Computed example of a mutant assay.
Amino acid sequence: MSETKSTKRGRVVAAVTATLAMSALSAGFTATSASAAELNASSMCQGTASGALMKWGPVSKQCSYTSPASGWKGKLKVTWNVQSGTNQYACVEARMGKARNPDKWQSVGCGQSGSGTVKWPSNTASNVEVRVQARPNALLANVDYSI
């Protein structure tokens, strides 16, 4: 399946945003999460995930993150929303995707938008893994998420 220009551009923007966020964090700054209604450049990373009706879609691994060594509360906020202008309804799960023994999936909500936290110990580098499942009113659900 070929990617659209929009998808490629979104991945480039996500990679640049993640790089800038990592630079800011290593310099001692903190980043804030975007609201579900408006994912923007203030988030550390943005990604997309899709799922079919009552079936978990492929795992999205577009965002990696390193938690600070000290002063960290042990949680990472994931904010998401379905494609605007649609009647899609999704359930979204996320986890810390370590190479060995990934964490258990944690619900970050169901509906058209939402947010939730994923356990993330201090001084830990890993990918945020996100998966989506469409619910009865739509055959597919496409979700944009940010950390």
Results as ranks from 00 to 15, higher is better:
residue 109 G to T: 03
residue 124 T to L: 09
residue 64 S to V: 10
residue 95 R to I: 10
residue 81 N to E: 14
residue 43 S to G: 15
residue 52 A to G: 12
residue 74 G to H: 14
residue 70 S to H: 14
residue 59 V to P: 02
residue 65 Y to R: 08
residue 83 Q to H: 07
residue 88 Q to I: 06
residue 61 K to F: 15
residue 88 Q to R: 05
residue 67 S to V: 06
residue 64 S to K: 12
residue 38 E to T: 15
residue 101 N to Q: 13
residue 106 Q to C: 13
residue 133 Q to P: 06
residue 65 Y to I: 03
residue 96 M to V: 09
residue 52 A to C: 02
residue 36 A to R: 13
residue 87 N to H: 06
residue 80 W to R: 13
residue 43 S to K: 00
residue 42 S to R: 12
residue 82 V to G: 01
residue 102 P to E: 00
residue 44 M to P: 09
residue 55 K to A: 05
residue 125 A to L: 04
residue 123 N to R: 11
residue 127 N to Q: 01
residue 118 V to A: 08
residue 41 A to Q: 09
residue 109 G to M: 02
residue 112 Q to A: 14
residue 48 T to F: 06
residue 123 N to D: 15
residue 68 P to A: 07
residue 59 V to W: 03
residue 96 M to F: 04
residue 98 K to F: 05
residue 47 G to H: 04
residue 101 N to S: 15
residue 60 S to A: 13
residue 47 G to K: 00
residue 75 K to F: 06
residue 122 S to C: 12
residue 59 V to Q: 02
residue 104 K to A: 15
residue 86 T to Y: 02
residue 45 C to I: 08
residue 83 Q to A: 09
residue 103 D to P: 08
residue 41 A to W: 04
residue 131 R to L: 07
residue 61 K to E: 05
residue 36 A to G: 14
residue 120 W to I: 06
residue 63 C to N: 08
residue 71 G to V: 07
residue 131 R to G: 09
residue 104 K to E: 15
residue 69 A to E: 13
